[in-house]
């Protein structure tokens, strides 16, 4: 799936990186190798790492002091090695609701995804750590979250869709529409979905119109708002 996306990804992705100014990132990851690798990766793509910390407390302090454009956070951090990172990120978001947060983890849980999406304000990401392998796409996700967008791991979306599988309106979607819906839920733009599914953008927007009609959602041209509507729909259904 990842290879497919990458082969489909045109050169256009790169100029997203060059388009905006240096994105300021606070990074929280307790494993040195990964912290170092992520720092290099993000710097190589023109981002500025204003702090790279190891623990939840340091993270909270750095978020308050640096006011970054985005926080890239590992869920499990010292000292408790529980969900320290997630808690710190949620706490920081309570202080500053629009703070973009991208959560990284060795595993993805619907439970955490729902907590992150609960406030409905977007600017969240939740990805498996192995998504870092696809460097460009990962950087793209960071940037998207920094801009107020959403980046949900395909695995989370698959689980969300699965737990909504018994849902009547969802059942009426065609397989293709479900694919487009999954793409939207992951936070992709029409263009990105079109590239991923080898469709024209026009076709994708027709699909999205259909989906919104079937799910009884208000149509919107704004990508971010559209994603939020879809996620709120998926999130709310299974509550």
């Amino acid at each position: 799936m990842l290879t497919g996306e990458r082969t489909a990804a045109p050169a256009g992705v790169a100029d997203v990186a060059e388009r905006s100014g240096a994105v300021r990132v606070v990074l929280a990851e307790d494993q040195y190798l990964l912290r170092d690798g992520l720092t290099r990766l993000l710097q190589a793509h023109g981002m500025e790492i204003c702090a790279a910390v190891e623990s939840g407390e340091e993270l909270l302090a750095a978020l308050r002091a640096e006011r970054p454009d985005v926080a890239v956070v590992d869920i499990r951090l010292p000292p408790t090695f529980t969900d320290e990172g997630l808690q710190a990120a949620l706490a920081a978001r309570r202080e500053r609701p629009e703070l973009p947060v991208l959560i990284l983890s060795q595993h993805v849980e619907q439970l955490y995804a729902r907590e992150l999406l609960a406030d409905g304000s977007g600017a969240v990401g939740y990805l498996l750590k192995d998504r870092v392998f696809a460097a460009r796409q990962f950087v793209d996700s960071v940037r998207r979250v920094a801009e107020g967008g959403t980046a949900m791991d395909p695995e989370v979306i698959a689980k969300l869709l699965a737990s909504n599988a018994r849902d009547e309106p969802l059942g009426r979607l065609t397989p293709r529409e479900r694919e487009v819906l999954a793409g939207m839920a992951e936070g992709r733009s029409n263009a990105a979905i079109a590239r991923q599914l080898f469709l024209s953008e026009g076709a994708v927007s027709k699909y999205t119109t259909n989906i919104f009609a079937k799910l009884d959602l208000a149509p919107s041209d704004d990508d971010n708002r559209r994603v939020r509507a879809v996620l709120a729909y998926l999130n709310g259904r299974a509550e």
């Binding site: 499990r76 529980t82 969900d83 060795q106 849980e109 619907q110 439970l111 729902r114 689980k159 699965a162």
Partner: peptide, 19 residues
């Protein structure tokens, strides 16, 4: 992992969500 991170209550909730 949820059990380690959140304890029994949330682990069972996560289990329920994935079911």
């Amino acid at each position: 992992p949820v059990l380690a991170e959140r304890g029994l209550g949330d682990a069972v909730r996560a289990l329920a969500l994935d079911s």
